[in-house]
């Protein structure tokens, strides 16, 4: 286990200077994510045009891995369609949990910096919290609006 695999320069940088950090107002969709075990709390916001994510921001507090992962996520999903985001999440999840993950590094871009997390199983949840939260926000958008 090499610490430098986990806390790569990209991760440290995105933790110290998170991109797209703050509230998105107005936001078409948002969701709160909470990892009660370590106390990470994130809110993901997104604006949509049809199937496309036109803007995404996040706020909250958490460990370096959860903040950097959320920051990297916002850069990665902007402009993508909801189904492309779903595929990307599958890739990231494979990257975080499988040693022999058949993931194309080119598709992942900077997100590949999260690969060190798989050596630290206790930290996988930190890295995936933002993805689950964004998913929840997007799924909520798909739900029919009720007037109750």
């Amino acid at each position: 286990m090499d610490l430098k695999d986990l806390y790569r320069d990209v991760i440290v940088d995105h933790n110290r200077h998170p991109r797209n950090f703050g509230k998105l107002q107005p936001a078409d969709v948002h969701a709160d994510g909470h990892n009660p075990l370590c106390g990470d709390r994130l809110t993901m916001y997104a604006n949509l045009k049809g199937e496309h994510i036109t803007d995404v921001k996040f706020e909250g507090s958490g460990c370096a891995i959860s903040v950097a992962s959320a920051s990297l996520l916002t850069e990665a999903v902007k402009g993508k369609t909801k189904s492309e985001v779903k595929e990307l999440f599958d890739d990231v999840h494979a990257l975080l949990t499988q040693h022999d993950a058949a993931v194309d590094p080119a598709r992942l871009g900077k997100l590949a910096a999260l690969s060190g997390v798989r050596e630290f199983p206790a930290r996988v949840k930190c890295a995936s919290l933002c993805w689950h939260t964004l998913n929840a926000a997007l799924e909520r958008a798909a739900e029919p609006v009720t007037t109750e």
């Binding site: 990470d40 460990c63 891995i65 206790a122 930190c126």
Partner: peptide, 13 residues
């Protein structure tokens, strides 16, 4: 500026 979870991981190494 450092979350306890990161402290725990680094201390473990």
């Amino acid at each position: 500026g450092i979350h306890p979870h990161d402290i725990g991981t680094i201390l473990d190494t």
